[in-house]
Nucleic acid binder design. Structure first.
Lengths: 242, 242
DNA sequence: CAGGAGGAATAGATTTATCTAAAATAAAAT
DNA sequence: ATTTTATTTTAGATAAATCTATTCCTCCTG
């Protein structure tokens, strides 16, 4: 009985899975998550390439059985394609957390570095990072880190811009791709896990006046819209989270 | 007065310096270190490619002014080429040490991982590693880690196979590329820094009987030849090294 | 239901790094 | 000095990922 030595991304990399292919899979996954169709044009825009480039990559990924193509609806990940996408995302988010924890990177710097390295680290590197970090569930921006099996805890969050005043909120997540935004947020002390209350909400998409931890700040609607929050649970017991 | 924002490897990478180019530069550097000419054939063998591949890369590197080409003598690194080679080597060796210190890799596993990552880490990553490790001077195999400026301490070592009995030796260095050899050496407790004495030396390239630390082992001549050692200095003071 | 707008695919070119097969050239040897 | 040997280079192909320009085709609209 021959033992299956390689599977998932490792196997496919041995068969010639390339960094660009991995990047396209991530982009397709991201579009699907947003409920959009991964059409040629949408994918080309996401990847910042020309439509013909996207077309040919879609065809290639279809040959590899990583996506299925429907005319004018674009491409959808197969289970295998989704598995690979999630493995790359796991690499990315583990790297982000690792860089910030172990090498003192700030949260606005980690995305760029992780974006390159995610394609070149081994599965061994991945699991060593995960172990060193205590099998973490969230990256520095609050995004979930899929497990090895491709599962994660879904936390139903909503936009800070849509929050109603008086509720006590916990910041949950923000996108990792805009370093300027992240630097701005860290000036305000706005990190995942921080307590927020909306004190005033100005009309016509006006600014919000917030309590952030123990200080108070105004925040524009556009920024608030990019921040995901959850309601603070009524505590049943004083649970300390580190 | 415009500030020079990029230099060395960073500048060249922005201009399109590729991972294969970096690998060739390392190979040329390595051949030069061994006192060999980096001819087409030698380089092709070192890089495990066909001679025409080596030719075309030599031409390309010459276009980039990273090497100078002399007919039938092969190629020599220019100062710029050497600078790049040393930066890549610095990346490699820092990565090796970092992986073994911070992620618990054993010394036979680090080379492979570093070989890929060396081309993709940023200068920031490099300096953070160096700082986290206390600006180390040697990698896990005892090879010198060049400084940012491309200098390092030259330690005149010699082969264990050529050592005369009775002297007390310190293991200095071993190549990093053969995992099997490294695993064998670690079974014997043979690491850089470990004390060795040659107790018996059998003729005709026969085995050596060694004291390694506090235990005794036989070691074949071929293996001994790959191990670099230095004479243990007469201690002036009891200095503890960690 | 017949065009036209716009999205999608094709055609052909470019760049990088590799290959094999063949030709050219330098060094060595008789 | 001529031949042989060995190294080096050229020529032509391939594969990946991209591009521009062009053509094709689907869907919607009038």
């Amino acid at each position: 009985m021959a033992k299956q030595k390689y599977s998932g991304i490792l196997l496919l990399r041995r068969k010639g899975l390339t960094a660009p292919m991995e990047d396209y899979l991530k982009a397709i996954y991201s579009l699907q998550q947003k409920g959009m169709n991964a059409t040629t044009l949408a994918l080309a825009k996401e990847m910042k390439v020309s439509p013909p480039s996207a077309t040919s990559m879609m065809k290639k990924l279809a040959d590899w059985k990583l996506v299925r193509h429907t005319l004018y609806l674009g491409v959808r990940l197969t289970p295998l394609g989704e598995k690979i996408a999630l493995e790359v995302i796991r690499h990315h988010r583990l790297l982000e957390l690792y860089l910030s924890h172990s090498l003192g990177y700030s949260w606005d710097e980690v995305h760029q570095e992780a974006e390159k390295l995610e394609h070149f680290i081994s599965e061994d590197f991945e699991s060593r990072m995960s172990q060193a970090l205590g099998n973490p569930k969230r990256d520095p921006h609050g995004a979930p880190i899929p497990t090895k099996k491709g599962t994660w805890e879904e936390i139903p969050s909503f936009s800070l811009a849509s929050a109603s005043p008086k509720n006590c909120l916990i910041m949950q997540e923000v996108e990792d791709e805009d370093p300027e935004l992240l630097r701005y947020l860290s000036q305000l002390g706005l990190y995942p896990g921080v307590e927020i209350s909306v004190l005033e909400k100005h009309p016509f998409e006006g600014p919000l006046y917030l309590r952030i931890g123990k200080s108070h700040h105004y925040l524009g609607h556009k920024v608030a819209d990019r921040i995901r929050v959850i309601l603070k649970k009524k505590r049943r017991k004083e649970v300390k989270e580190k």
